[in-house]
Design a protein around this nucleic acid. Structure first.
Length: 808
RNA sequence: GCCGCGGUGGCGGAAUUGGUAGACGCGCUGGACUUAAAAUCCAGUUGUAGCGAUACAGUGCGGGUUCGAUUCCCGCCCGCGGCACCA
């Protein structure tokens, strides 16, 4: 009887005792670094969805081990973050205590799944020895001018007097008290990721191992767009409005200007604006909207005309109105646009609502007229455009930019959608930012030898009612002396965002106990870069861009020797509940892996999660499916109880085909078809066994079957290999090779079609010629009846596969 | 709204480059074994018509390209992930 509990416990103890998975570092062998996105240890523990990616990397790690690689396959915890802090606030408990408990739970839950992690290399982002280096990297960025202070808005609940995460908002209102949230500017630290925008974009082309969809998302996130900045003079004033446009060719159709409500220009023009009270009211309304709400193409456009001021189009000297409207964002481009309603959909919708003029200047050809229905947004030929009339859009763009530059009215400009990274949080549970504010010397870094700057103990974890971090209330921590002049100074009280720790953890695993690992780099050369990185698609943009940014910075300062951290990237699809919804306490559809492991076994859970569907696709949990996999493992176990072996040629051939398929499918992450191939092999063995009352394989071949099963189901494979008489771990054995001669088929099913419709499949030699195939087909009644009284127009022959006879 | 991904039997899914649609698993139906049940084994299982051989239809919807389309192109519908302070 297959007693999974006994077997799994036994082998997990042996693996730990014999240190089977200790990372080997003799550099004579090739290396393979397989990385999981490390988890945030939440209080809810693991559900069956979490380990899906870990099972996949474990299978790959075990394959690579058996293929003779030194494998680095570590695990750790990304442990700073809001949930632990919220838990601490609610329960008046130090977040470290809750986090440590959660980590212990996660480790216990992971350990019973039989992973090959080398726990000697565990890292945790909240460990001061770890965040010392997070702080160190930040300081290097600061010293090179990549970190700067800026007033940036946070979500502010005026009633709770607290900053809120986007997640804590409901419909733009505070989740707790339903007060509309406003955008309150606060002094923040910001990282100049935009300095790296071009490299982050261009180097995507150097990553053939990344999925195209994720590269595409990153390209769009970085959002490079080429255009021009143009100065519109304000009438009777020295002031100018600078606008950014990618469609300078439409500028003769500009009928007004739109400025973002929060653009400082608006307050600068206050004296001239005749309807200031109306304008001020609109600006206030905008404070409660998110960018997402503001830029929704479908929503009703809102805005206010600034009465009493006009701007002048530098190309035709026309006077145009100036509006403020929330569909223009201050954070993109110059915070102002020229509006061309005839050639831009948002401008068109706005113009219709506010009754502004619509002037068409781009036409698909010389004859067409503009009918006033919607915007014509494509390129075309210019009309009514002064000296540029008659040019095509692309040519006009070049010549108009040249005109701007010649006359000092503007210039060519590349803009990025990516914004500089607001890197501070007014929170407790994060890495302290190691900077000091000195009234004499300004901002001074904490000296590197004083790192880590420890997170101090506080009485209350709540943000203060000024919006500052709770650290601001600990005056004996805040008050310090300036490292430069020795005078009294204050510490920075903001902390880093959760993303910080995950930007470089893959480097820490390489040498986790060496305090100088980042600066002395012996092993880094051997293990880097990460060969295979697996994690959720939700990280496609932020984490993966942030980590690439930090890595490029570390490359620039000589800490790492290569420009991209992750050679191959694969995203994992979610496991949903049986009801098709995300697993969540709220829906009561959470499946706990502990119960599944105890009832059906870790091997069954592992094989099932790989069998459920394509690895990168979301899939619903189904316990019946798991039972099917369990039955498959029982069949394998029962085969192991036989001790008479009798080789059968067909079975041997199928074994070799399966070795080929499983090896290839693991490398390409097609685990579902690999498991299916293993099931087909085992079914065949069972069927033949029932006929001949012996195992239709040699002992050596049965061991090969166990080897190709072992990455998926390591415990049962070890157990059966042992009872077969093999000593030592199966994972120390060499992955089997398939024999090309054994997998060749002599006969094939040749598909015969008439006019593309299947009419017969005929058994034929794999080498059959077109003539012979046609002759064979004519003799077959099922085919010939479709050929009578018809003329053969064409014959299509795909050797070894198909014959299609086209008749009339 | 914008960006990315997906839609195939009763269900999860397979079809490696445009070449037999439905592998494998679940479920269901029938049978063997059993006093009986469970377990196991065997057979069947896209729909329609037919005793059957077989024929026709069929991969979200509507068009197109092709000897041939689940696969490529155009236009829609629906679901999922992300949208910068959840990680």
């Amino acid at each position: 009887m297959y007693n999974h509990q006994e077997i799994e416990k036994k082998w997990q103890e042996i693996w730990a005792r014999e240190r089977v998975y200790q990372t080997k570092t003799d550099q004579s062998k090739p290396k393979y670094y397989i990385l999981d996105m490390f988890p945030y240890p939440s209080g809810a523990g693991l559900h069956v969805g979490h380990p899906k990616g870990y099972i996949a990397t474990d299978i790959l790690a075990r394959l690579k081990m058996m293929q003779g690689f030194n494998v680095l396959h570590p695990m750790g915890f990304d442990a700073f973050g809001l949930p632990a802090e919220n838990y601490a606030i609610k329960n008046k408990l130090h977040p470290k205590i809750a986090t440590d408990e959660n980590i212990a739970t996660y480790k216990r839950q992971l350990s019973i799944l039989g992973f090959s992690y080398d726990w000697d290399r565990e890292v945790s982002t909240i460990d001061p020895e770890y965040y010392k280096w997070t702080q160190w990297i930040f300081l290097q960025m600061y010293k090179r001018g990549l970190a700067f202070e800026s007033n940036e808005p946070i979500n502010w609940c005026p009633s709770c007097k607290t900053g809120l995460a986007n997640e804590d908002l409901e419909d733009g209102k505070c989740e707790r008290c339903s007060t509309p949230v406003i955008q309150k500017p606060l002094r923040q630290w910001v990282l100049r990721i935009t300095d790296y925008a071009d490299r982050l974009l261009d180097d995507l082309d150097k990553l053939p191992g990344w999925e195209d969809s994720i590269k595409e998302m990153q390209r769009n996130w970085i959002g490079r767009s080429e255009g021009a900045e143009v100065d519109f003079k304000i009438k009777d004033s020295e002031q100018k409005i600078k606008v950014f446009t990618t469609r300078i060719d439409t500028i003769f159709g500009c009928t007004y200007i739109v400025v973002a409500p929060e653009n400082s220009l608006v307050t600068e023009l206050k004296e001239k604006i005749e309807n200031w009270s109306e304008v001020a009211l609109y600006i206030e309304e905008c404070q409660s909207k998110t960018d997402l709400q503001r830029t929704d193409l479908n929503k009703e456009k809102t805005g206010v005309c600034l009465k009493g001021v006009k701007a002048i189009n530098p190309f035709n000297q026309e006077e145009v109105d100036i509006f403020i409207a929330d569909y223009v964002l201050n954070s993109y481009g110059t915070g102002a646009v020229m509006a061309v309603p005839a050639h831009d959909e948002r401008d068109f919708a706005f113009a219709k609502k506010f009754g502004t003029r619509i002037k068409a200047v781009i036409f698909p050809d010389e004859q067409s007229e503009y009918e006033g229905k919607g915007a014509y947004i494509a390129d075309g030929l210019l009309r009514n455009s002064g000296e540029f009339t008659g040019l095509s859009s692309p040519v006009a763009r070049q010549e108009m930019i040249a005109y701007l530059e010649k006359n000092n009215l503007g210039a060519k400009k590349v803009n990025f959608k990516i914004k500089d990274w607001v890197f501070s949080r007014q929170r407790y549970w994060g890495e302290p930012i190691p900077l000091i504010h000195c009234p004499q010397c300004g901002v001074v870094p904490v000296p590197e030898e004083e790192l880590p700057l420890l997170l101090p103990e506080v009485k209350s974890y709540e943000p203060t009612d000024t919006g500052e971090s709770p650290l601001a209330l600990i005056s004996d921590w805040v008050q310090t002396t300036c490292p430069q002049c020795g005078g009294p100074a204050k510490r920075e009280t903001n902390t880093m965002p959760q993303w910080a720790g995950s930007c470089w953890y893959y480097l820490r695993y390489i040498d986790p106990h060496n305090d100088q690992a980042l600066v002395d780099k012996g092993l880094e050369k051997y293990w880097s870069p990460v060969d295979f990185y697996v994690g959720g698609a939700e990280h496609a943009t932020r984490h993966l861009i942030y980590a690439r940014f930090w890595h490029k910075f570390l490359f620039d300062i000589g800490v790492v020797n290569y420009e991209e951290p992750f050679t191959k990237l694969q995203h994992v699809g979610l496991i949903m509940g049986e009801d098709g919804r995300k697993m969540s306490k709220r829906w009561g559809n959470v499946i706990n892996p502990d119960e599944i492991v105890s009832q059906y076994g870790a091997d069954a859970l592992r094989v099932y999660e790989m069998f459920m569907g394509p690895f990168d696709q979301a899939c619903n949990w189904n316990t019946n499916g798991l039972i099917g996999v369990r039955k498959f493992l029982e069949k394998v176990y029962n085969l192991g109880e036989l001790d008479n072996f009798q080789e059968v040629k067909e079975v041997k051939s199928l074994l070799h085909k399966t070795i080929k398929k499983v090896s290839a499918d693991i490398e390409s992450f097609c685990f579902n078809t690999a498991v299916s191939a293993l099931m087909i092999l085992v079914n065949e063995i069972v069927e033949v066994k029932n006929k001949i009352s012996a195992l239709p394989l040699t002992k050596e071949d049965f061991f090969k079957l166990l080897q190709i099963l072992s990455p998926f189901a390591p415990h049962i494979s070890e157990e059966l290999a042992e009872s077969l008489g093999y000593t030592g771990s199966i994972f120390a054995s060499t992955w089997p090779q398939y024999d090309e001669n054994l997998i060749k088929d002599e006969k094939i099913n040749l598909v015969i079609q008439v006019n593309g419709k299947l009419r017969a499949t005929l058994l034929a030699s794999a080498e059959i010629t077109e003539e012979a195939a046609l002759e064979l087909a004519r003799q077959e009644k099922l085919v010939s009846k479709w050929l009578t009284d018809k003329e053969i127009v064409k014959v299509i022959f795909v050797p070894g596969k198909l014959l299609n006879i086209v008749v009339k």
